[in-house]
Design a protein around this nucleic acid. Structure first.
Lengths: 215, 215
DNA sequence: AAAAATCTGTTGTTATAACAACGAAAGGGT
DNA sequence: ACCCTTTCGTTGTTATAACAACAGATTTTT
């Protein structure tokens, strides 16, 4: 994925982006599957951009239960909230669910003074606002998907959004069963059970990560 | 509350704010207790700022169940996410929980071109980013508070944050019982029951909206 | 002050999700 | 091909939250 295709760099040329990257001390790092990228409680100043692979945002309670807040696909940004609130410890952990390459950028000077050596700061700040708004929207959606008291309701809420997003009743989900359960905050085995009931009831068909939503 | 004390207008003088308000076509509107301010599905372009009273952000599913995403106190902003993503229909409803006065502002031109007649746009854009980041953080917190499978766990997660925020083990919560239940996504009567068990167990004491968290 | 409306706490019943345990299936590595 | 690991689906039991119904308390209205 080209940097200029990313939401964060919208309106910028490849050349402009290059100067931005050096201006903001960008660093690239690679993570193996399962590795933690940023951990809960840490205080950070950089935003992260996934270049390849896939990351997941999650948190763990004291009993070891995991909740997944969302996934970060290539081209998407994470930790922007904490980078924009200096000193705020992270409430979540970001980890690689497959081998993942990440670009870190110090957006601090975008937030503070206007004395920018680099003329693209204004543009970047605007894009960052858009990115932040989209992230908020994703969190709202995740809340809506877990607002039903029943597992079936949660699944249908999530699947409906997937179908809408894909523009088709057939779509792939980015989670395996355990991750989907952690995203919807339910028990995996109970959810598997519910999925097969829904298939018996003719509401859905599924095979691995492909779901078909019927009428 | 003075406008210059609000996060959105940080760094601006009262005079600057006045010119901003007229520049951004700000309008003041009043709402009675219970009235809907912005409703789910509508497409909006303005952010809202609560000047007095209290608003609540919520959503309803098809069975009439209500989920509360958060409350908006005087000085705080709402709908900024939708104002920053033109064309995105609202996923939530904003309503007044008491008589409430709201200031609406069209931030559209802050997001688009640089040709600002008004020199405070840059500052406002930066503040808007901060506001948006804080809202994201609030949503993350609400997700954490509902991630426990048990009602007691959810209450303790929420109360712990309240105590931390208040800097004391004794604090007031901004919700009545039904609203608290809707915020934590649980049944009110079951939650009331759990609250009194927790009091019996010596974990908390409470009287109306004042909670005391014991050791 | 009385009446109405809302809010709160309690109880008992029922539905349902969590949990534990296991075998089957699917991947991954050598 | 094999083993080893992870993922997935199924079952039965148990814990717990939802739900319904109501009485007492509190607040608001007239």
């Amino acid at each position: 994925m080209k940097l200029s295709d990313m939401q964060l760099f919208r309106g910028l040329e490849e050349d402009d982006i290059s100067s931005l990257l050096s201006c903001l001390n960008s660093v690239k790092r690679n993570y193996k599957k399962g590795e933690v990228i940023l951990s809960e409680g840490s205080i950070i100043e950089n935003i992260g951009i996934v270049r390849s692979g896939m990351a997941m945002i999650s948190c763990n309670d004291i009993w070891g239960n995991t909740s997944i807040l969302g996934s970060v696909a290539p081209g998407s940004v994470f930790a922007e909230v904490y980078a924009c609130i200096p000193g705020q410890p992270m409430l979540v952990t970001v980890s690689a669910v497959e081998d993942t390459s990440v670009l870190f950028m110090d957006v601090g000077r975008v937030l503070t003074t206007c004395t920018n050596a680099c003329p693209f700061h204004t543009n970047l700040a605007r894009n960052l606002l858009t990115v932040c708004a989209h992230k908020s929207l994703q969190l709202s959606q995740r809340i809506l998907h877990t607002s039903s008291k029943s597992i079936r309701g949660r699944l249908m809420s999530y699947f409906s959004e997937c179908a809408k997003h894909a523009g088709s009743n057939s779509f792939l989900i980015p989670y395996n069963r355990q991750q989907l359960a952690d995203y919807l905050n339910v028990d995996r085995s109970t959810m598997c059970n519910e999925l097969s009931k829904m298939q018996k009831d003719g509401m859905i068909e599924y095979k691995k990560n492909r779901i078909l939503l019927k009428d």
